[in-house]
Write a protein that binds this DNA or RNA. Sequence first.
DNA 1: ATCGTTCGTGAGAGCGCTCTCATGGGCGCC
DNA 2: GGCGCCCATGAGAGCGCTCTCACGAACGAT
Lengths: 343, 343
Amino acid sequence: MTDAHSQIRTAPTLEAVAARAAVSRATASRVLRGAANVSSRARAAVEAAAEELSYTPNRAARSLVTGRSESVAFYVDESEDRLFSDPYFLGVLRGTQTAIAQAGMQLVFTVASTPQDHERFLRYAAGRHIDGVLLLSLHGQDQLPQQLERLGVPTVLSGRPLADGSELCFVDADNTAGGAIATRHLLDIGRSVVATITGPLDMGAGQDRLAGYLDTFAERGLPVRQELVSEGTFTVSSGYDSMLRLLETEPSIDAVFAASDLTALGAMRAIEVSGRRVLDDVAVVGFDDISAAETARPALTTVRQPIAEIGAKMADLLVRRISGEEPTRQTILPVELILRDTA
Amino acid sequence: MTDAHSQIRTAPTLEAVAARAAVSRATASRVLRGAANVSSRARAAVEAAAEELSYTPNRAARSLVTGRSESVAFYVDESEDRLFSDPYFLGVLRGTQTAIAQAGMQLVFTVASTPQDHERFLRYAAGRHIDGVLLLSLHGQDQLPQQLERLGVPTVLSGRPLADGSELCFVDADNTAGGAIATRHLLDIGRSVVATITGPLDMGAGQDRLAGYLDTFAERGLPVRQELVSEGTFTVSSGYDSMLRLLETEPSIDAVFAASDLTALGAMRAIEVSGRRVLDDVAVVGFDDISAAETARPALTTVRQPIAEIGAKMADLLVRRISGEEPTRQTILPVELILRDTA
DNA sequence: ATCGTTCGTGAGAGCGCTCTCATGGGCGCC
DNA sequence: GGCGCCCATGAGAGCGCTCTCACGAACGAT
């Protein structure tokens, strides 16, 4: 199997590079990995040989001996429908992809919906196919990150985990501050009946944005009225439905803080359908600053969270943990109110 | 390194499964790979042992010997900005992800923007890190797919390649038919000055949708007026700019076929900005049927292409080619006019 | 009863790499 | 000038798996 013909199809091995550079495989390996303790003469020879043969190390072979795969999973615990319709995930994916590629690693893309997927992923991770996991959209008391960590697979979450996840590694936007900024703004422009459509309350982001809303009422000594709070799911349709219900219960609502832009967009539609006008009758503030917020008419005032940056930060944290560092485990990124036409 | 402690952290090997089942490694391997020629007794024993140890084969080791990595690249030749703002890619990714996962393979997600990325990817592919490539958004006369095939890496494109790509493997929607359906519809509802905003004309999709428009004019014996054709880039902003220009040049335009929904959305905005009303003054038909088409106001009439299905089909084709089959190389999927409020 | 055949099985090589360990040459030091 | 030390290097094992090949048992055919 070493006839001239098959050589064409066969990628050059380290052996070939070493031979061409007239050094041993070990030395060639050292050079290519960037290890110290190599003479500059040997280094130059190996680098030249590798270049000439356009050598690429065989990942599988390396992986087999190092026990590392140089790839991380991007795991979204969400139904496909949600995943592919919510720009948030895509923004995080984007930030992540760039950072991971820069580190010379692969991003293995995975979506899970069923509990079986969950189980299968755990086994997969246990098989050391990946060096780490970027976990998105964790719900409730899900123990997946804990299980992964117990397996020795470093995991970084997007979003604060609930309750017992205190020593998990995560990156999040300052959701509480964001909720407060939005609510304060609505109060500051003179609105008095300020409702909110929350995110799912089994997620940190949902809870914290609501907390910001509630805090603001407390801060100003205003009473919170339960009929002004409606739980949503971050989706357009939940925004629409919630808003319709809110307006029916309390027709005097003159402002609403929606916990996501998608929700806000749905709420805007509901406001119009109910015969009211956005801003004139009901001011709206969203959360996220997805691109649709800017192009919507009227353009949506919203709390911007640095989505791509969250992804990048997550990737960065994960890469560092994989290479043995012990970085600060939790990062909260600042948010910012973007004033447009709805509030 | 075989003390009780490290065993906890070490995934069980095939050796361990074989030992537990009291067979040789070879037999265990045969069972786990689903090969024939194994006694049912041995098969049962191995399966039980694997289950008990919750064994997962080590991909790297397998990959090293088979020369296959069980993973395929999802490669988008587009800037990140475009990629993450165009639902088309995401839809394809979605269809792809499901099908690839089903085949037990990994999806390695890659975005390329610069020519260096291109080069780097070729080397990467040459290193046999992936078994095949799903290539999206090929522009112009780019030779990447040919180069990949020459390297022996099966490649499947989304969208017809231009000119010399005749024997490449691709999946596409019936763009020409779609363009024709849209144009015919606009004519059929009584519009007489029908403009079009095309996609990029260095792509099959851009060319073919325009061809459908032109064909329809020829079919009806109508003259094509150059000032009614404006080249766009599938983006919102190009739709906006093109529409503004078209209306300035020819104020009597009463309909427009936009080669993508994003373009159509931009065009609708331009129509309103110019003081006209969508439908009443200018009817609009888009292409794609992304979710924003349905939620836009007025809701966009558009040509639906089965985006996720394109992804699934691509993955299916690729998987079959990887496993040595020689499937029909080119698939054209049907499109369908979705009537809503803009035409 | 004998032969050939088939079929299940196991031994063992080897995929391409990293890493440990032993070796030898060059250097500084007294 | 001799001793010890360090640094660059190479030999070789071995990561976990697949696959080839040879072997023996079981079977049908003559």
